[in-house]
């Protein structure tokens, strides 16, 4: 398949988990894939290897999405090296769980700065080049907990709910330039971020999911690939749930 042949995609947080599946998914469909990672060099190299094994061009760029200047330079770098930028996937995220009484300011800031402000900084940086190209697709990874809330995740869910508002506002702003902005909202997905949950918690979670299983990173990547593709040409401002039915 080569739905994204000659397209350039930037995926944040691409070294592991959902981000890796998204990066590799685009690579399998012929895109040039640039992905960011925060610091796990070995994981980043592994993702890069998977992209290249799929026969695509790949590039790993280490930067912190909570640093607006770094976001702007990264986008500039993509444009300089690859000449264009067709798809931005804001996937990078952190979760620091804790009951609201015990949430530290620094943990609140870290989650909001990475998950929400990071997406904003990158959207701001790509919007002008995408406007000049008269087209583009932006996909923000939100979360089921941004839609339904979750005890112990006040900051994380606030950042993810914020991404939904960001998605819809920017979708309206950029629609006239054929730039589509959508969100994908995963439920419980089997990744490093959920692997710390114990057996009992996991069983409870599975019982709350009509489809009866945790999602896979590929389940989420498939939704992202769809929204980035021409098959979704008439879809903007949408929040696509990929949650096995746990929240409808």
């Amino acid at each position: 398949m080569s739905a994204f042949k000659d397209k350039v995609v930037l995926v944040t947080g691409g070294s592991r988990g959902i981000g890796r599946s998204i990066a590799v998914g685009f690579a399998k469909q012929g895109a040039t894939v640039v992905f960011s990672y925060a610091g796990n060099e070995a994981a980043a190299q592994e993702t890069l290897g998977l992209i290249q094994a799929a026969g695509a061009k790949g590039e790993a760029v280490r930067f912190d999405v909570s640093d607006a200047t770094a976001c702007a330079s990264a986008v500039e770098g993509v444009l300089k090296t690859h000449g264009r930028l067709d798809v931005l996937v804001n996937n990078a995220g952190v979760a620091v769980d804790g009951l609201v009484m015990r949430v530290k300011d620094e943990d609140w800031d870290k989650q909001l700065d990475t998950n929400l402000k990071g997406a904003f900084s990158l959207i701001r940086a790509v919007s002008r080049p995408m406007m000049k190209q008269k087209g583009g697709a932006i996909i923000n990874l939100t979360s089921v907990v941004g839609e339904m809330g979750n005890g112990g995740q006040a900051a994380y869910s606030a950042s993810k709910a914020g991404l939904i508002g960001l998605t819809k506002s920017v979708a309206r702003e950029l629609a006239s330039r054929n730039i589509r902005v959508n969100a994908v909202s995963p439920g419980f997905i089997g990744t490093d971020m959920t692997s710390h949950l114990g057996g009992e918690t996991r069983e409870k979670m599975e019982a709350a999911i009509p489809l009866g299983r945790l999602g896979s990173p590929e389940d989420v990547a498939n939704a992202v690939l769809f929204l980035a593709s021409d098959a979704a040409a008439y879809i903007t401002g949408e929040v696509l749930k990929v949650n096995g039915g746990m929240y409808m």
Binding site: R128, M131, E173, L174, S176, R177
Partner: peptide, 11 residues
Amino acid sequence: ADSLDIVELVM
């Protein structure tokens, strides 16, 4: 021009 064009012009 529309509002986005004007922002781009200004920039």
